[in-house]
Amino acid sequence: MTVVFDADFTSTRQWITGRSSAYPRMGPTNRSDHKLDYLVRGYCPGGVFTAARRHSGGLWSCNLLTTEGSPDGFQVHTGDVLSARVTLPVELGAWPAIWTWRDGGNEVDVFEYHPDNPDLLEISNHVRGGYRYWHGAGAGIGPGATFGMRVVLGANSVDWYVEDELVYADLHGVGSGWHAYLIVNLSVADGTYHARPPISGPDRLSWTCHSLRVER
C-alpha cells in the first residue's frame, strides 16, 4: 500500500479550521450533541488540540480540523487503512476524537475518549452499524497514555487495532462505494453523559495527535 495522506496539522491545503457540516450551520456550537464547544479558527502545531474556557456563557474555545472544504479536499475510501498515534488527555471534560463525515453521515469513529472512563476507548461504525466500548487497561490505556491505532476501512468489516492487537471487527463494513472526509478535534462534554470540566478546574484542556496517515 502507498501513503496517500500524511497529516500536517498546520497545512492550509490539507485542512480548514473551526467549522464543519457535522455541526449545525457549520458551527460554532453543537449543544444538541451535548458539547460545550465554541469552534475557533486555528491550526494545531505538533498535533496539539486544545480547548480554552471562555470568559462567559459556559462554553469552551475548541480546535477542530477537517479536510471537508479544504483545497486538497482529501477523503478516505473503502479499503483504506488509517493509522494514528495519540496521547490522551488527563482533564475531566476533554472529549478528543478522530472521525469521518460527509453529507450528514458516513461517520466512522476511529476513537472517542473521556477521562471519566479512564481505560475506555469508544469505537464505532455509524455507516452500517457496529460499535465497541473497549476497556484497554491491560494495554496501558488511561489518561495521558500514548499509543498507536490502526483502522482498516473494509467493505464488509471495519477492523480496529491498538498497538497491533485486533480489538474489534464489526463484520459490517462501509460498503464498496463509501468515502468521507476526515475530522480531528477536541470537544468538551456538557455533563449529560460524561463529566464536564469542574468550575475550579484548569482553564485549558488538550490532547495530541502525533501522526495521522492513510494508506491505499
Rank of each mutant, 00 (worst) to 15 (best):
S20C: 14
T78H: 05
V158R: 07
A139Q: 09
S20W: 11
Y113V: 06
W60R: 10
Y113C: 04
G79C: 09
V158F: 06
G46T: 04
G93M: 05
R13H: 15
Y113F: 11
I16N: 13
P143D: 10
T12W: 04
T192E: 02
G148L: 00
V81S: 09
L182D: 09
T17K: 06
Y181G: 12
S187R: 02
V90G: 08
F5Y: 15
D203R: 11
G27D: 11
A195I: 02
C209N: 10
P96G: 01
H126M: 03
S61P: 01
E122R: 00
H126Q: 13
T67P: 02
N30W: 13
Y193V: 08
N106W: 02
S211F: 04
S21I: 14
G138L: 06
R196I: 03
D33R: 11
V214R: 09
P118M: 10
V174M: 06
L212T: 05
Q75W: 04
S157A: 15
T50H: 12
R204K: 11
A137C: 09
D72Y: 01
Y131F: 07
A7P: 10
T66E: 05
H210R: 01
Y38C: 08
D8Y: 06
Y133T: 02
T192I: 00
D8T: 05
Y133W: 08
G104N: 06
L212K: 03
D203W: 03
W178I: 14
R150S: 08
S157E: 09
Y161T: 01
R128M: 09
A195K: 05
E122D: 00
D164H: 12
P198T: 12
D33Q: 13
A7V: 09
F111S: 00
R196G: 11
Q14Y: 11
D80E: 11
V162L: 14
A137F: 05
I183R: 15
W95G: 05
N125H: 12
G144M: 10
N125S: 10
P45L: 15
Y113N: 06
G69E: 08
H114M: 04
G129H: 10
A52S: 07
A94K: 03
G177F: 13
G58D: 14
S20F: 12
E107M: 12
T10F: 08
L153P: 12
L59S: 10
R132L: 12
Y181T: 11
G201I: 11
G58R: 13
E215H: 13
Y23W: 14
G136I: 03
A22N: 11
L88D: 03
G69F: 09
D159K: 02
V167R: 02
E112L: 04
Y193H: 15
L166R: 13
P71Q: 15
H179W: 03
V76Y: 14
W101D: 01
R213V: 14
G42S: 00
L205T: 03
